[in-house]
Design a binder for these strands. Structure first.
Lengths: 176, 176
DNA sequence: CATATATCAGGTGCACTGAAATGA
DNA sequence: CTCATTTCAGTGAACCTGATATAT
Protein backbone atom coordinates (compact mmCIF):
# COMPACT_ATOMS: atom_id res chain seq x y z
CA UNK A 1 0.00 0.00 0.00
CA UNK A 2 2.15 2.86 -1.14
CA UNK A 3 0.07 5.75 -0.09
CA UNK A 4 3.26 7.83 -0.01
CA UNK A 5 2.00 10.51 2.26
CA UNK A 6 2.33 13.78 0.47
CA UNK A 7 3.07 15.83 3.53
CA UNK A 8 5.99 13.60 4.41
CA UNK A 9 9.21 15.14 3.32
CA UNK A 10 10.49 11.95 1.89
CA UNK A 11 13.78 11.25 3.55
CA UNK A 12 15.49 14.18 1.87
CA UNK A 13 17.82 14.18 4.81
CA UNK A 14 18.74 10.91 6.35
CA UNK A 15 18.53 12.26 9.86
CA UNK A 16 17.56 15.56 11.31
CA UNK A 17 19.48 15.47 14.52
CA UNK A 18 22.52 13.76 13.15
CA UNK A 19 24.10 16.14 10.72
CA UNK A 20 23.49 19.14 12.93
CA UNK A 21 26.21 20.98 14.75
CA UNK A 22 24.09 20.55 17.84
CA UNK A 23 24.35 16.82 17.62
CA UNK A 24 28.02 16.62 16.74
CA UNK A 25 28.97 19.08 19.41
CA UNK A 26 27.12 17.08 22.00
CA UNK A 27 28.77 13.86 20.88
CA UNK A 28 32.25 15.36 20.66
CA UNK A 29 31.88 16.98 24.02
CA UNK A 30 30.66 13.75 25.56
CA UNK A 31 33.68 11.97 24.17
CA UNK A 32 35.95 14.64 25.57
CA UNK A 33 34.27 14.33 28.95
CA UNK A 34 34.75 10.59 28.89
CA UNK A 35 38.43 10.82 28.17
CA UNK A 36 39.09 13.46 30.81
CA UNK A 37 36.90 11.70 33.32
CA UNK A 38 38.67 8.47 32.66
CA UNK A 39 42.10 10.03 32.97
CA UNK A 40 41.40 12.12 36.04
CA UNK A 41 39.65 9.24 37.75
CA UNK A 42 43.06 7.61 37.92
CA UNK A 43 44.01 10.41 40.28
CA UNK A 44 40.68 10.30 42.07
CA UNK A 45 39.50 13.72 40.98
CA UNK A 46 36.92 15.16 38.59
CA UNK A 47 37.30 17.75 35.92
CA UNK A 48 36.26 20.72 38.01
CA UNK A 49 38.66 19.75 40.74
CA UNK A 50 41.34 20.08 38.13
CA UNK A 51 39.99 23.32 36.78
CA UNK A 52 39.73 24.96 40.17
CA UNK A 53 43.16 23.77 41.22
CA UNK A 54 44.65 25.09 38.00
CA UNK A 55 43.07 28.50 38.47
CA UNK A 56 44.20 28.74 42.05
CA UNK A 57 47.72 27.79 41.01
CA UNK A 58 47.87 30.34 38.23
CA UNK A 59 46.03 33.18 39.87
CA UNK A 60 47.60 32.87 43.27
CA UNK A 61 45.36 33.36 46.27
CA UNK A 62 41.86 34.26 45.14
CA UNK A 63 38.32 34.13 46.34
CA UNK A 64 35.81 31.42 45.57
CA UNK A 65 33.59 33.77 43.65
CA UNK A 66 36.48 34.81 41.44
CA UNK A 67 37.34 31.23 40.61
CA UNK A 68 33.73 30.49 39.86
CA UNK A 69 33.42 33.45 37.52
CA UNK A 70 36.56 32.50 35.67
CA UNK A 71 35.56 28.91 35.12
CA UNK A 72 31.85 29.56 35.02
CA UNK A 73 31.27 27.17 37.82
CA UNK A 74 28.36 27.92 40.04
CA UNK A 75 29.07 29.43 43.44
CA UNK A 76 27.18 26.57 45.09
CA UNK A 77 29.25 23.95 43.39
CA UNK A 78 32.45 25.81 44.20
CA UNK A 79 31.81 25.21 47.87
CA UNK A 80 31.70 21.45 47.50
CA UNK A 81 34.62 21.44 45.08
CA UNK A 82 36.80 23.39 47.48
CA UNK A 83 35.70 21.23 50.37
CA UNK A 84 37.03 18.26 48.45
CA UNK A 85 40.26 19.96 47.48
CA UNK A 86 40.87 21.20 51.00
CA UNK A 87 40.13 17.79 52.48
CA UNK A 88 42.69 16.33 50.10
CA UNK A 89 45.21 18.93 51.22
CA UNK A 90 45.55 20.55 47.82
CA UNK A 91 44.29 23.98 48.79
CA UNK A 92 43.91 26.01 51.91
CA UNK A 93 41.05 28.34 52.77
CA UNK A 94 41.26 31.20 55.22
CA UNK A 95 39.15 34.27 55.73
CA UNK A 96 40.44 37.32 53.89
CA UNK A 97 41.40 39.89 56.54
CA UNK A 98 40.74 42.75 54.12
CA UNK A 99 37.19 41.65 53.37
CA UNK A 100 35.92 39.16 55.86
CA UNK A 101 33.11 37.96 53.62
CA UNK A 102 35.70 36.36 51.43
CA UNK A 103 37.73 33.23 51.63
CA UNK A 104 41.28 33.48 50.44
CA UNK A 105 42.06 30.25 48.59
CA UNK A 106 45.68 29.18 48.29
CA UNK A 107 47.28 26.17 46.70
CA UNK A 108 49.45 24.04 48.93
CA UNK A 109 52.80 22.46 48.10
CA UNK A 110 51.02 19.14 47.88
CA UNK A 111 48.51 20.76 45.56
CA UNK A 112 51.26 21.98 43.25
CA UNK A 113 52.81 18.56 43.13
CA UNK A 114 49.48 16.93 42.39
CA UNK A 115 48.63 19.47 39.72
CA UNK A 116 51.61 18.40 37.65
CA UNK A 117 50.35 14.86 37.74
CA UNK A 118 46.87 16.02 36.73
CA UNK A 119 48.30 18.10 33.90
CA UNK A 120 49.83 15.00 32.38
CA UNK A 121 46.54 13.13 32.63
CA UNK A 122 44.58 15.91 30.97
CA UNK A 123 47.19 16.20 28.26
CA UNK A 124 46.75 12.54 27.52
CA UNK A 125 42.99 12.94 27.31
CA UNK A 126 43.48 15.82 24.90
CA UNK A 127 45.81 13.69 22.85
CA UNK A 128 43.29 10.88 22.62
CA UNK A 129 40.51 13.22 21.64
CA UNK A 130 42.43 15.02 18.92
CA UNK A 131 44.22 11.97 17.60
CA UNK A 132 42.19 11.86 14.37
CA UNK A 133 43.13 15.45 13.49
CA UNK A 134 46.33 16.92 12.14
CA UNK A 135 47.91 19.74 14.08
CA UNK A 136 46.68 22.21 11.51
CA UNK A 137 43.16 20.87 11.87
CA UNK A 138 43.40 21.05 15.62
CA UNK A 139 44.17 24.73 15.41
CA UNK A 140 41.26 25.19 13.06
CA UNK A 141 38.92 23.43 15.42
CA UNK A 142 40.13 25.43 18.39
CA UNK A 143 39.68 28.65 16.49
CA UNK A 144 36.17 27.83 15.36
CA UNK A 145 35.10 26.71 18.81
CA UNK A 146 36.56 29.81 20.36
CA UNK A 147 34.54 31.97 17.99
CA UNK A 148 31.41 30.20 19.09
CA UNK A 149 31.96 30.31 22.81
CA UNK A 150 33.14 33.90 22.89
CA UNK A 151 30.32 35.18 20.73
CA UNK A 152 27.75 37.30 22.51
CA UNK A 153 24.74 35.36 23.59
CA UNK A 154 22.44 35.14 20.59
CA UNK A 155 19.35 35.70 22.61
CA UNK A 156 16.80 38.25 21.65
CA UNK A 157 15.48 38.56 25.18
CA UNK A 158 18.75 39.55 26.74
CA UNK A 159 21.16 41.08 24.27
CA UNK A 160 24.86 40.68 24.80
CA UNK A 161 26.11 38.69 27.73
CA UNK A 162 29.35 37.47 26.28
CA UNK A 163 29.88 34.02 27.61
CA UNK A 164 27.48 33.51 30.43
CA UNK A 165 24.46 31.63 29.28
CA UNK A 166 21.00 31.56 30.57
CA UNK A 167 19.09 30.07 33.43
CA UNK A 168 17.39 26.75 33.31
CA UNK A 169 13.95 28.03 32.65
CA UNK A 170 10.70 26.89 34.09
CA UNK A 171 8.46 25.35 31.53
CA UNK A 172 7.28 21.85 31.41
CA UNK A 173 4.10 22.39 29.54
CA UNK A 174 3.23 19.45 27.39
CA UNK A 175 5.30 16.57 28.58
CA UNK A 176 6.56 14.84 31.66
CA UNK B 1 70.63 20.69 36.98
CA UNK B 2 69.59 23.63 38.93
CA UNK B 3 67.62 22.94 42.05
CA UNK B 4 65.63 25.90 43.30
CA UNK B 5 62.59 26.80 41.25
CA UNK B 6 63.54 24.96 38.13
CA UNK B 7 60.74 22.47 38.43
CA UNK B 8 58.16 25.23 38.69
CA UNK B 9 56.88 26.16 35.31
CA UNK B 10 56.25 29.79 36.03
CA UNK B 11 53.09 30.86 34.27
CA UNK B 12 54.44 30.15 30.82
CA UNK B 13 50.87 29.56 29.71
CA UNK B 14 48.10 31.78 30.85
CA UNK B 15 45.62 29.03 31.55
CA UNK B 16 45.74 25.29 31.37
CA UNK B 17 42.12 24.41 31.08
CA UNK B 18 41.16 27.31 28.91
CA UNK B 19 42.97 26.88 25.65
CA UNK B 20 42.35 23.17 25.55
CA UNK B 21 39.97 21.56 23.14
CA UNK B 22 38.46 19.87 26.14
CA UNK B 23 37.41 23.15 27.64
CA UNK B 24 36.21 24.76 24.44
CA UNK B 25 34.24 21.72 23.46
CA UNK B 26 32.55 21.68 26.81
CA UNK B 27 31.70 25.35 26.57
CA UNK B 28 30.48 25.18 22.99
CA UNK B 29 28.41 22.14 23.75
CA UNK B 30 26.90 23.78 26.79
CA UNK B 31 25.97 26.77 24.71
CA UNK B 32 24.39 24.53 22.11
CA UNK B 33 22.45 22.73 24.82
CA UNK B 34 21.22 26.02 26.16
CA UNK B 35 19.95 27.19 22.81
CA UNK B 36 18.20 23.96 22.02
CA UNK B 37 16.82 23.64 25.50
CA UNK B 38 15.54 27.18 25.34
CA UNK B 39 13.95 26.66 21.96
CA UNK B 40 12.40 23.27 22.65
CA UNK B 41 11.14 24.44 26.02
CA UNK B 42 8.80 26.68 24.09
CA UNK B 43 7.15 23.51 22.86
CA UNK B 44 7.40 21.83 26.24
CA UNK B 45 9.83 19.12 25.21
CA UNK B 46 13.47 18.29 25.72
CA UNK B 47 16.15 17.45 23.25
CA UNK B 48 15.80 13.70 23.44
CA UNK B 49 12.08 13.91 22.97
CA UNK B 50 12.89 15.61 19.71
CA UNK B 51 15.56 13.14 18.79
CA UNK B 52 13.41 10.13 19.43
CA UNK B 53 10.43 11.58 17.62
CA UNK B 54 12.62 12.40 14.63
CA UNK B 55 13.98 8.87 14.47
CA UNK B 56 10.55 7.34 14.73
CA UNK B 57 9.32 9.61 11.96
CA UNK B 58 12.19 8.80 9.66
CA UNK B 59 12.55 5.13 10.37
CA UNK B 60 8.89 4.31 10.49
CA UNK B 61 7.76 1.85 13.15
CA UNK B 62 10.73 0.61 15.13
CA UNK B 63 11.58 -0.84 18.48
CA UNK B 64 12.78 1.06 21.50
CA UNK B 65 16.14 -0.64 21.47
CA UNK B 66 16.69 0.34 17.85
CA UNK B 67 15.96 3.98 18.56
CA UNK B 68 18.26 3.91 21.53
CA UNK B 69 21.10 2.41 19.52
CA UNK B 70 20.70 4.96 16.78
CA UNK B 71 20.71 7.94 19.08
CA UNK B 72 22.93 6.40 21.71
CA UNK B 73 20.31 6.97 24.31
CA UNK B 74 20.25 4.50 27.13
CA UNK B 75 17.55 1.84 27.06
CA UNK B 76 16.45 2.89 30.54
CA UNK B 77 15.95 6.48 29.54
CA UNK B 78 14.16 5.44 26.36
CA UNK B 79 11.36 4.05 28.47
CA UNK B 80 10.70 7.36 30.21
CA UNK B 81 11.13 9.32 26.99
CA UNK B 82 8.58 7.19 25.18
CA UNK B 83 6.24 7.36 28.13
CA UNK B 84 6.28 11.14 27.76
CA UNK B 85 5.84 11.06 24.01
CA UNK B 86 3.04 8.57 24.22
CA UNK B 87 1.29 10.56 26.95
CA UNK B 88 1.50 13.61 24.71
CA UNK B 89 -0.04 11.64 21.87
CA UNK B 90 2.99 11.94 19.61
CA UNK B 91 3.76 8.24 19.36
CA UNK B 92 1.99 4.98 19.84
CA UNK B 93 3.40 1.81 21.34
CA UNK B 94 2.08 -1.64 20.72
CA UNK B 95 3.57 -5.09 21.12
CA UNK B 96 5.15 -6.41 17.94
CA UNK B 97 3.21 -9.53 16.92
CA UNK B 98 6.24 -10.95 15.16
CA UNK B 99 8.48 -10.72 18.22
CA UNK B 100 6.51 -10.26 21.36
CA UNK B 101 9.47 -8.98 23.35
CA UNK B 102 9.41 -5.85 21.28
CA UNK B 103 7.34 -2.74 21.26
CA UNK B 104 6.53 -1.34 17.88
CA UNK B 105 6.75 2.42 18.12
CA UNK B 106 4.84 4.50 15.59
CA UNK B 107 4.50 8.21 15.17
CA UNK B 108 0.96 9.59 15.22
CA UNK B 109 -0.53 12.25 12.98
CA UNK B 110 -0.30 14.64 15.88
CA UNK B 111 3.32 13.64 16.30
CA UNK B 112 4.08 14.43 12.68
CA UNK B 113 2.47 17.82 12.98
CA UNK B 114 4.35 18.60 16.17
CA UNK B 115 7.63 17.44 14.69
CA UNK B 116 7.49 20.13 12.05
CA UNK B 117 7.13 22.73 14.75
CA UNK B 118 10.06 21.22 16.65
CA UNK B 119 12.17 21.18 13.50
CA UNK B 120 11.78 24.92 13.17
CA UNK B 121 12.76 25.45 16.79
CA UNK B 122 15.89 23.34 16.48
CA UNK B 123 16.80 25.05 13.25
CA UNK B 124 16.63 28.36 15.04
CA UNK B 125 18.87 27.08 17.83
CA UNK B 126 21.36 25.92 15.23
CA UNK B 127 21.22 29.32 13.59
CA UNK B 128 21.94 31.09 16.87
CA UNK B 129 24.82 28.78 17.66
CA UNK B 130 26.52 29.09 14.30
CA UNK B 131 25.81 32.76 13.80
CA UNK B 132 29.43 33.79 14.35
CA UNK B 133 30.66 31.46 11.60
CA UNK B 134 30.50 31.75 7.83
CA UNK B 135 28.90 28.93 5.92
CA UNK B 136 32.32 27.71 4.86
CA UNK B 137 33.47 27.68 8.44
CA UNK B 138 30.35 25.86 9.51
CA UNK B 139 31.15 23.08 7.09
CA UNK B 140 34.71 22.98 8.37
CA UNK B 141 33.51 22.70 11.94
CA UNK B 142 31.04 19.98 11.09
CA UNK B 143 33.72 18.04 9.28
CA UNK B 144 36.21 18.27 12.10
CA UNK B 145 33.68 17.31 14.71
CA UNK B 146 32.54 14.39 12.64
CA UNK B 147 36.08 13.13 12.42
CA UNK B 148 36.34 13.22 16.18
CA UNK B 149 33.07 11.55 16.99
CA UNK B 150 33.40 8.83 14.40
CA UNK B 151 36.95 7.97 15.33
CA UNK B 152 37.44 4.64 17.04
CA UNK B 153 37.59 4.91 20.77
CA UNK B 154 41.14 5.86 21.69
CA UNK B 155 41.27 3.62 24.66
CA UNK B 156 44.12 1.29 25.25
CA UNK B 157 42.08 -1.00 27.46
CA UNK B 158 39.41 -1.70 24.89
CA UNK B 159 40.58 -1.09 21.36
CA UNK B 160 38.11 -0.03 18.73
CA UNK B 161 34.54 0.56 19.66
CA UNK B 162 33.63 3.16 17.10
CA UNK B 163 31.23 5.50 18.73
CA UNK B 164 30.09 3.98 21.95
CA UNK B 165 32.10 5.29 24.83
CA UNK B 166 32.91 3.78 28.10
CA UNK B 167 31.23 3.13 31.41
CA UNK B 168 31.20 5.49 34.31
CA UNK B 169 33.90 3.79 36.25
CA UNK B 170 34.06 3.25 39.95
CA UNK B 171 36.87 5.11 41.52
CA UNK B 172 36.61 7.81 44.06
CA UNK B 173 39.91 7.37 45.68
CA UNK B 174 41.27 10.63 46.95
CA UNK B 175 38.40 13.04 47.02
CA UNK B 176 34.79 13.40 47.93
C1' DC C 1 21.34 -23.07 27.32
C1' DA C 2 22.44 -18.05 25.72
C1' DT C 3 20.61 -13.78 23.88
C1' DA C 4 17.63 -9.70 23.29
C1' DT C 5 13.89 -6.62 24.78
C1' DA C 6 11.47 -3.71 27.84
C1' DT C 7 11.05 -2.21 32.41
C1' DC C 8 12.23 -0.69 37.08
C1' DA C 9 15.17 0.90 40.79
C1' DG C 10 18.80 3.37 41.75
C1' DG C 11 23.51 6.30 41.61
C1' DT C 12 26.46 10.02 40.10
C1' DG C 13 28.15 14.31 38.14
C1' DC C 14 26.75 18.59 36.59
C1' DA C 15 24.21 22.92 35.96
C1' DC C 16 21.19 25.16 38.05
C1' DT C 17 17.62 27.80 41.88
C1' DG C 18 16.40 29.91 46.16
C1' DA C 19 17.30 31.31 50.50
C1' DA C 20 20.08 32.21 54.49
C1' DA C 21 23.88 34.48 57.20
C1' DT C 22 27.51 37.58 57.14
C1' DG C 23 29.81 41.64 56.17
C1' DA C 24 31.27 45.83 52.94
C1' DC D 1 19.56 50.27 52.56
C1' DT D 2 21.82 47.69 48.75
C1' DC D 3 25.24 44.73 47.23
C1' DA D 4 28.68 40.83 47.31
C1' DT D 5 30.33 36.51 49.33
C1' DT D 6 29.87 32.09 51.19
C1' DT D 7 27.05 28.37 52.49
C1' DC D 8 23.15 25.09 52.51
C1' DA D 9 19.24 22.63 50.67
C1' DG D 10 17.29 20.97 46.82
C1' DT D 11 15.74 20.35 41.59
C1' DG D 12 16.18 18.60 36.86
C1' DA D 13 18.24 16.51 32.95
C1' DA D 14 21.66 13.49 31.25
C1' DC D 15 24.30 9.42 31.67
C1' DC D 16 25.10 5.28 33.70
C1' DT D 17 24.67 0.39 36.34
C1' DG D 18 22.31 -3.54 37.73
C1' DA D 19 18.46 -6.62 38.20
C1' DT D 20 14.08 -8.54 36.65
C1' DA D 21 10.53 -10.72 33.63
C1' DT D 22 9.68 -12.22 29.27
C1' DA D 23 10.29 -14.02 24.84
C1' DT D 24 13.52 -15.73 20.96
Amino acid sequence: MDVSESCEQQSHSAERLRGTALWFLGRASLRAQHYTHEQLAKAGIRKWHYGVLAVVAERGPTTQAAIGRRLRVDRSDMVALLNDLEAAGYVHREPDPADRRRNSVTITAEGKRALKEFDALVLEAERMLLEPLSSKEREQLLGLLERIVTAPCADRTDPADPGGLHPRGQPKSRLS
